[in-house]
Amino acid sequence: MWDPGKYLDYDDLRARPFHDLIGRIGARAPRRVVDLGCGPGHLTGVLRERWPGAEVEALDSSPEMVAAARAAGVAAEVADVRTWKPRADTDVVVSNAVLQWVPEHRELLRRWVGELPEGAWLAVQMPGNFRAPSHELVRSLAEQPEWADALAGAGLRAEDTVDDPIGYAELLAEAGCAVDAWETTYVQRLTGRDAVLEWISGTALRPVRAALDDEGWSRFRERLAPLLDEAYPPRADGTTWFSFRRVFVVAQCLSENSGPLSSRQGSGFQSLSSPAA
């Protein structure tokens, strides 16, 4: 289960990669725009504002997130990205911080490219921090005897969950796309006690919370908190610097790939922002 309230605790920081992602989509007048993994719907409205003439389709696999999105006025539907198929008029597909939860997402990307109409845009952003202490410490703690049995099948994600930008650039170029891929490390200023623990509680720790009862969850957090504080020392003013790497790829589906997106003539590409390399 997803907790929309916990997820939105850091709404401003979680939204920044989304804006950087869609800023590189060059579609001018798409017929249909799809938000794959819309969460609580707080960013779906940004797609409506960007393309007011488009039909905006929003879906998420979490009933809790879909309920929150509907409460916010988004006509979201419960659906699984693994079985989703684009409609014939789908010109833009956005998947923001979703596919890292789907082990077979590389195959999905290939399939979507084959199903989307020529000229359609596919924009994906995923966390690339699975080698960071925030994740390594969780995996290490989960392997301790106290937790090993309960968390053996929890689905904690490994170091190779997400490829580097070149990996996705190669994958989509081979599928017949023009590709713009990059990565950005955001240095986030978190506030409050156990700041990093609270951040990952809304995302990375979801499998742990789902596998443990309330008492076990409380003990796990108590053991994890000082480890995270050592890896991410709080500053004298109570804030904590948290480096968060993200991987981005924006691709346009073409009948024949003819080079990087940003150098194509007549591709409809329009740079609205310049992400950091």
Rank of each mutant, 00 (worst) to 15 (best):
E118G: 02
D164P: 11
E146G: 00
C177G: 02
W147Q: 08
H135N: 03
V187W: 13
L151K: 05
V162F: 08
G167W: 15
A178R: 02
D163Q: 15
G119Q: 00
A173F: 02
A169C: 04
R139K: 03
S140V: 09
S140K: 01
E174I: 00
D163I: 06
V162G: 05
A158R: 15
D194S: 04
A123P: 04
D160R: 13
P165K: 15
L137A: 07
G202H: 05
Y168I: 11
D180E: 14
G192V: 09
G119M: 06
L171S: 01
A123Q: 02
Q125E: 03
G119D: 01
A178I: 06
P133E: 01
H135F: 07
G192D: 09
A154N: 04
A178M: 03
Y168E: 12
L151V: 10
V187M: 10
E143R: 10
C177M: 01
A123M: 14
F130H: 07
E143G: 00
R193F: 14
P127V: 00
E146I: 09
V124I: 15
W147P: 05
P145A: 06
Q125P: 03
L122M: 04
A195K: 10
E136Q: 07
A175T: 01
A158D: 06
G155M: 11
G176M: 06
V187T: 11
E183R: 13
R131E: 15
G192M: 12
R131N: 13
P165L: 14
